[in-house]
């Protein structure tokens, strides 16, 4: 299993590239609410989950696709780290 990955950095880069092209990276902080803030919706969440599953060879569960686990870059990174660890 891959270790030493900076999940937060990779998640942020993915979100910027995929969903927020042209936005200032400094504005996308680790604690910005993505789902509850209306920045990413169910389709974007789905795309993101599928991407990370493929990227890190992990499997996420349906009940993990929620605000508790995916609302901020910090939350997403923590989830990925727990799955990949």
């Amino acid at each position: 299993m891959e270790t030493g990955i900076d999940f937060a950095r990779e998640v942020k880069q993915y979100i910027l590239d995929e969903f927020l092209p042209g936005e200032n990276p400094d504005d996308l902080t680790d604690d910005l609410p993505l789902i509850s803030g209306g920045i990413i919706d169910s389709i974007a969440t789905l795309k993101m989950v599928l991407h990370f599953e493929e990227r890190y060879g992990i499997v996420l569960e349906a009940h993990e696709a929620d605000k508790e686990h995916l609302d901020t870059i910090r939350d997403i990174a923590a989830l990925l780290a727990s799955k990949a660890g």
């Binding site: 902080t29 604690d31 910005l32 901020t72």
Partner: peptide
């Protein structure tokens, strides 16, 4: 400012 928002919007 969105930066200001980001600074306090999530509980660490």
């Amino acid at each position: 400012s969105v930066i200001a928002v980001a600074g306090v919007s999530g509980r660490k």
